[in-house]
Amino acid sequence: MPPILMVDLMTTSQPLLSVKNLKTYFALDDGVVKAVDGVSFDIHAGRTLGIVGESGCGKSITARTILGIVDRPGRIEGGEIWLTRQAEDGTPYQTDLLTLPLEGSEMRAIRGKEIALVFQEPMASFSHYYTVGNQIMESILLHTALGEEGARQRAIDLLGMVGVPKPERRIDDYPFQLSGGLRQRVMIAMALACDPHVLIADEPTTALDVTTQAQVLNLLQTIQKERALSVILITHDMGVIAEMADDVVVMYLGRAVERGPVDAIFYDPKHPYTKALLRSIPSITAKPRTKLATLEGSIPHPFARPKGCPFHPRCAEAIKGVCDRYEPVPIAQGEGRDVSCFLYGGQP
């Protein structure tokens, strides 16, 4: 199983995936929920982009939008998703995924083959009625020229690679026969089945215990190194971000409020939300029985999204008459960094 290293794609400075001004809205009876509202970011080959935020910030919908699998009544309202691909003769070219029909053959060929997804809760995303081998083989049979036997062998190899013990026996197990950690490994094997260039991992370790989480994170790091995979890691856990990501997008209520290299986000956060979020994380090196810095209030209901900057009602530094009226736009803060906040300039 030779890993398909796309040398051309690796050496170009062109991002492998470039998301621009993405918007996904849900039209519900009570109003429109702007789940993703103007999010932009780039992912380069072999790097990990962490998308972090609390519940309702739109991080999972962003992932689903990239793959064009937003459930109804969700609608992709606008934006561009440029994927760098390789023609048969090896020359790279770009496609805007949003211009492709969602159910068309080209989009189907990209899903699972070029961009793969690892879901949060493997038990909810596997079928109970097929063996894990069957489910892994399904995408191999769909996307490659391999026959039944070749696909089965490849599935066994994949299971072995992600550290499933006795893969030749486990392949005939049903998902419910596996532990949570093993299920997540199988899920990763399934995502890697067709050598994707981009792997989107949506809270891949949230349902797992810490020691199992450490195993799975290690596995993701190893696989990424071996295959020069680009990973979009979606999580609410700043600890996971700090350990895994190269670049970070911080989201709040559908907006990317801050974007930058991981070190800058943790050591020089700009947006008041990022700062507050970092201060409120319990620390394992804190003195016992110390209080935490808190962020006032709670995340607004998606229908009651505040006017202006969505963070202004909880922001200690909000500027009256500006933040509650106008929507901030991303302002560049040096190489690969921007922040959407009027404290850093920008015309109201």
Partner: peptide, 11 residues
């Protein structure tokens, strides 16, 4: 267990 906890510090 202590080692497995992801620490919120990229350095």
């Amino acid at each position: 267990l202590l080692s497995a906890v992801p620490k919120p510090d990229p350095r």
